[in-house]
């Protein structure tokens, strides 16, 4: 895990355009790109862009979590690779995705390791912000 990344200043923003009405889902899979989605989701949550939400709650068919997710204004989904597990999990639950990113499409090669750089995390966060703009 990269632990060198810049921490957001001032913690969560109170701006009405950010916060709990935007949910962020990460595949958090067992590879560098999967774990990169997880790190990006945490960072975007800490920066106040939205609320990192448990994909496992949707996969586990937890009713209250599906209801909460269905009440979101926007859903951001981050997948590490083209297998698109997070996207398919949300689609199976009938949850519409308004912003979607695949890490391997952003030039990060998938490997069976867990190394990542701060630049890669920041790059994914930046791309999400661009896609939302």
């Amino acid at each position: 895990m990269a632990d060198c990344c810049n921490k957001p200043q001032g913690a969560k923003a109170d701006c009405a355009c950010s916060g709990d009405n935007v949910l962020i889902f990460a595949c958090s899979g067992g590879s560098n790109v999967g774990q990169l989605t997880n790190e990006a989701a945490k960072k975007l949550d800490q920066e106040g862009l939205g609320k990192f939400f448990c994909l496992a709650g949707i996969g586990g068919d937890i009713e209250t979590m599906k209801v909460n997710a269905a009440g979101a204004d926007r859903i951001i989904a981050l997948d590490g690779c083209g297998v698109a597990c997070a996207k398919m999990t949300l689609e199976r639950a009938g949850l519409p995705i308004s912003c979607y990113l695949v890490v391997t499409d952003e030039g990060v090669e998938k490997g069976h390791h867990f190394e990542m750089s701060c630049d890669e995390i920041d790059g994914i966060c930046g791309r999400v912000r661009e896609l939302l703009a």
């Binding site: 067992g30 774990q35 997880n38 496992a56 586990g60 996207k87 398919m88 867990f114």
Partner: peptide
């Protein structure tokens, strides 16, 4: 998040292999 980090560490140590829960959630 701790569960993920623990799974990564156990994979590195060779105790087992972390597996993508999302792949099962998506029924791949």
């Amino acid at each position: 998040q701790g569960t993920s980090e623990a799974a990564v560490q156990l994979t590195r140590e060779g105790v087992g292999e972390i597996f993508c829960l999302a792949g099962l959630a998506a029924h791949i």
